[in-house]
Design a protein around this nucleic acid. Structure first.
Lengths: 205, 205
DNA sequence: CCGAAACCTGAGTATTGAGTCATGTTTCAT
DNA sequence: ATGAAACATGACTCAATACTCAGGTTTCGG
């Protein structure tokens, strides 16, 4: 439990059955870890939930840490796809920002278990956790730089901006999409977007 | 380990010796949990580090969760004091925002263990974790509303703004004060502050 | 300086759950 | 159709550690 993402991954399943079993375990782990948390989730509960034997788990994953890692990657892929789709045909960066923020909030509310899984990774495997955010930051940064070149946003430090904007999504998502299941995400997204676009400074003269 | 902040707290120590011992344990727990994480930190390591017997721990804390709770409160008090001091005589809200952000980043870099302790509380005791942020949000919100009334900032949704701004501090702090120990926090704080004040929208016209 | 309350101790108990393995079943290329 | 590789099983082992307790030591008000 000491070192991070060590040793090569287990060989992928060779048959259709194997692949199906691996997915069943992954799904059960997502539900279990997502609802009870990493510490409370036990391999035996996961395998029971997946309706496979205890030992089967170790055919596909080296440890509980290992399965968490895999889930973080899954979350990354799904969220990325969701956001890409959402901002695909936005006319400009500020509009992309609005749609992306809204889409993120919706995604969080619809995938609370995955959200928690990623958050737990912060301590279980800092390596993949950091990479998760760094990957998002990198593409965010690129988008901001391109928009700046097009004159769609004011010039500024793209790296810091990327992290700051992710921070807004992350915290606003936690507060309004995760903790408060009822509030209208449309309104929240609008309010946050207004801050992102205009800042706090008083308008006009 | 199932229910959150249950049962009344243990009675406070009655003698000077008792108080000292309790603090020794708290300090050791902060170091241990802060560096190894909640799961890896064991009571026996904590008591050894504090140079007290195993059983002594249970004179002052009901469980490992209990000591974490206490540390979150400690972090809240210390950070609040630090920030209050930092923004005490700022001439206006935007300047307070700048100083507060800078002070927060410095605090994180100087108290990495406490930062981690709070983050771990998210899963160990969601109750206190949420309260920790809600308390900050409440006073942040009040500050924004007052500033808005004074015309120092543009009108807007104070609740969402408060959480968004905390999100910026949180994420920028993690990235630049926690993960990157060398970068100049002054520059980072300035860049983030610029975004907070002006937003992304292109200036002029 | 006395004694009752407060504090301290650390070996021992009890539980928990990760990971193994010997044995059995299914798949699929030939 | 067949057999070798892949997959599946779950009772068992074993290490880790939270928490207890019976018996000691220290504190401090009167």
């Amino acid at each position: 439990m000491s070192d991070a993402s060590s040793s090569p991954p287990l060989p992928a399943p060779k048959t259709r059955r194997g692949e199906r079993t691996r997915q069943k375990i992954l799904n059960a782990a997502q539900r279990e870890i997502g609802s009870k948390g990493f510490a409370e989730a036990s391999i035996s509960t996961i395998t029971a939930e997946a309706a496979v034997g205890q030992g089967t788990f170790y055919l596909y994953f080296r440890s509980k840490e290992d399965v968490l890692r895999e889930l973080v990657l899954r979350m990354g892929r799904r969220l990325r796809r969701h956001l890409t789709l959402a901002i695909a045909d936005a006319p400009n960066r500020l509009e992309a920002e609005r749609r992306g923020l809204r889409a993120f909030l919706e995604f969080v509310r619809a995938n609370t278990d995955l959200y928690r899984v990623v958050a737990e990774a912060q301590f279980v495997d800092p390596e993949v956790f950091q990479r998760y955010y760094q990957d998002f930051a990198a593409s965010y940064r690129a988008g901001l730089l391109a928009a700046e070149a097009r004159g769609e946003i004011a010039p500024g430090d793209a790296e810091v901006r990327a992290w700051a904007l992710m921070g807004i999504s992350d915290m606003v998502g936690r507060r309004f999409a995760l903790w408060d299941a009822n509030v209208s995400l449309r309104k929240i997204a609008e309010a946050a977007h207004a801050l992102i676009v205009e800042g706090l400074a008083p308008r006009g003269r």
